[in-house]
Nucleic acid binder design. Structure first.
Lengths: 162, 162
DNA sequence: GTGCTATTTGCAAACGCGCCGCAAATCGGC
DNA sequence: GCCGATTTGCGGCGCGTTTGCAAATAGCAC
C-alpha cells in the first residue's frame, strides 16, 4: 500500500499516466490534467471504499494539495461522471471512482458502530419506482438508499455488553 | 389528560395541554414539560411536512425560543421517539411528528426543482432487506430511502424551456 | 404555597463542512 | 518557448449544528 516502489514500472505508470477515459473526458470538457487531479484519482483508485474530502486530502501525502482543491476537483470529476457522490448522513460527502463505462449506481450497508462499509448489489425495484412515479406524476426519478445496522463483530460486542 | 382532540377549535388548549403520550414519555425519561417543548410539538402538529430546525424556529412566533433550544429539544424528542428525523441531502435535518403508537417509518418523493414533498407508502421490500442482512451478517438493519425527481408542474416547465 | 434540586434555557462562542475571490502558478496548444 | 485559459493556494466566509456556562424553570416533597 506504500508508494516507495520505483522498481515497479506499472505502479509508477498508474500514478503518472492518466487513464484513457480520464484524458478523453477531461479534453472534452476543456479541462487540464494536473498533478492534484491525478493524485486524487489515484487515491480513489487505491481505495475501494467511498472517501470523504478530508480523507482524500489526508491520503494524498507528499502529493498533497490544498483541501479546497480537493473539493473543487471532486466537484468537476463528479460533473464529468468519473466519480460518484454518496451521502451517509453524517454530514460529509463521500466519493467513489466510477468503473469505466458504468454509471456507478449502487448502495451501501454501514455499521453504525464501527463504520464498516459494505457495497451491496440490492437496489430498489425499478417496477416499484416506476409505479411510484406514475402515481404521483413525477418524471426523471432517482433515489438515495443506504442501509445501516450492526456488523457481525459489533453485534457480538453489543450482546456481551448488555 | 385525555386523548387529543385536534378537531376542536380550542387551539390554545392544544398549545397549553400536552398530549397524554407526551407527558408519559417525558416522565419516563425524567424530562420536564416546558413551554418551548410544547410550542415546538405544536408547530409540528400543525404542519404535515418535515420541518427544518430553522423553519420550526421561525414558526414559533411569539412563543419563540432560542434556536439552540430548538436543536436540543428535537434531539431529545427524537430520542424519545416522539419525532422522526429525515435527511433530504440538502444539509439540513428535517423532523416530523410521529403518530401515536407508530414508529413513523416512511419515505418521501421530492421535486428537485420546486422542493415539493410527497409522502409515499412504498418501502424497500422487507424480504430483500432480511436477505441482505443475512448475507452480510448484519443485525438490526434499517434504511434511509428518499426519491427525487420532477413533479408534474416542473416537468412541464422544463419541457417548454428546452 | 414554599423550598430544593435536577433539568432546561438563552447567550455567545466555536465547530466542521463546503464554498468563494483573488493573485500566482500551471497546463496545453501554438 | 510563448501565451491564454484553467487551476491552485490561501484566506476568509456562510451555514447548520453543537457546546459551555450562568440564570431561569419545572416538578417534587413538605
Amino acid at each position: 500500500m506504500n508508494k516507495p516502489c520505483p522498481s515497479h514500472p506499472h505502479l509508477h505508470r498508474l500514478v503518472q499516466t492518466p487513464l484513457g477515459e480520464l484524458t478523453d473526458k477531461l479534453r472534452k470538457h476543456a479541462r487540464k490534467i494536473t498533478g492534484p487531479r491525478q493524485a486524487i484519482l489515484d487515491v480513489l483508485r487505491r481505495h475501494q471504499h467511498p472517501l470523504a474530502n478530508r480523507e482524500i486530502h489526508e491520503a494524498l501525502g507528499d502529493q498533497g494539495c490544498d483541501l479546497a482543491t480537493v473539493y473543487r476537483n471532486l466537484h468537476t470529476l463528479e460533473e464529468m461522471g468519473l466519480v460518484r457522490r454518496f451521502d451517509f448522513g453524517d454530514g460529509a460527502a463521500r466519493f467513489e471512482l466510477v468503473p469505466e463505462g458504468e454509471d456507478g449506481h449502487h448502495h451501501h450497508l454501514i455499521c453504525t458502530r464501527c463504520s464498516l462499509i459494505v457495497e451491496i448489489e440490492e437496489c430498489f425495484p425499478p417496477e416499484l419506482e416506476a409505479a411510484l412515479a406514475r402515481r404521483h406524476g413525477f418524471a426523471e426519478i432517482t433515489h438515495r438508499l443506504e442501509f445501516f445496522g450492526l456488523c457481525r463483530r459489533c453485534a457480538k460486542v453489543a450482546a456481551t455488553q448488555s
